[in-house]
């Protein structure tokens, strides 16, 4: 069974088709790097997968379930462009809230463990608004990984992270891979993505132009995929 099945997905913003029949399958346990130029439709596709947007046409199934069901949503972790934490709540209050929304058995204990993993235990009672940018990003990472999700949907997760946050995120992604979680991440940082990715998909003007396993050629030459499968500039 595929962890993600997107079939002929269309999405219009007004008259503009952001996605034009994009189809994608991701195997369980895979780490897919979703590549594409600005405006190719990466964020739109990821938002549809995360149930933040409805496709105009097409079908999306996550872990064998329709993507809009609470069961499917309980099993995904999403990290978008915004950090998704409340400035006026403390770090631990933020994570307890998300633990309650995820219906976890012991939200407080889970929150404290998550803060430990991202190195924010010492400031657990500090308000998020008082944190530095890097600390806020680590809190966002802790939020997305709080419930050890089976499917991680990450939209440009490495963009504007500081060194420590990058290290934390890479460690959490490796841990997630080793426990068999499926990861989809869009990125412009091809080199970093290729190191983690088992599979690669290239979006071009709302369509999947290439999808397949990551190869040595891609690792050695990050531009290869665009030259061979991308549309001319």
């Amino acid at each position: 069974m595929h962890a993600v099945e997107a079939e002929n997905v269309w999405k219009y913003f007004g008259d503009y088709p952001a996605l034009r029949g994009a189809s994608l399958q991701v195997n369980k346990g895979a780490c897919l790097a979703l590549l594409g130029r600005n405006g190719a439709g990466k964020t739109t596709l990821l938002r549809i997968l995360a149930n933040l947007s409805r496709p105009g046409k097409g079908e999306v199934r996550l872990l064998g379930l329709a993507s809009h069901t609470p069961e499917a949503r309980r099993r995904i972790g999403y990290l978008g462009h915004g950090i998704g934490v409340y400035d006026d709540l403390s770090a631990v209050e933020n994570l307890i809230l998300f633990g309650q929304l995820l219906n976890l058995d012991n939200p407080r204990e889970t929150a404290l463990n998550a803060l430990e993993r991202v190195g924010l235990s010492r400031v657990k009672d500090g308000l998020a608004r008082e944190f530095s940018r890097g600390m806020r990003q680590r809190l966002a990472v802790a939020r997305a990984f709080l419930h050890d999700p089976e499917l991680l949907i990450l939209d440009e997760p490495f963009t504007s992270l500081d060194d420590r946050a990058v290290a934390v995120l890479q460690k959490l992604l490796q841990d997630a891979q080793s426990r068999g979680a499926t990861i989809i991440m869009s990125t412009h940082q091809i080199r970093e993505a290729m190191e983690l990715a088992t599979d690669v998909a290239l979006l071009e003007r709302g369509k999947v132009a290439f999808a397949g396993p990551q190869t040595v050629v891609m690792l050695a030459d990050p531009g290869w995929l665009y030259r061979n499968h991308g549309a001319p500039e």
Binding site: R47, L52, R73
Partner: peptide, 8 residues
């Protein structure tokens, strides 16, 4: 986004 993508 986080609220809407949660199982709530």
């Amino acid at each position: 986004d986080v609220l809407v993508s949660s199982p709530a």
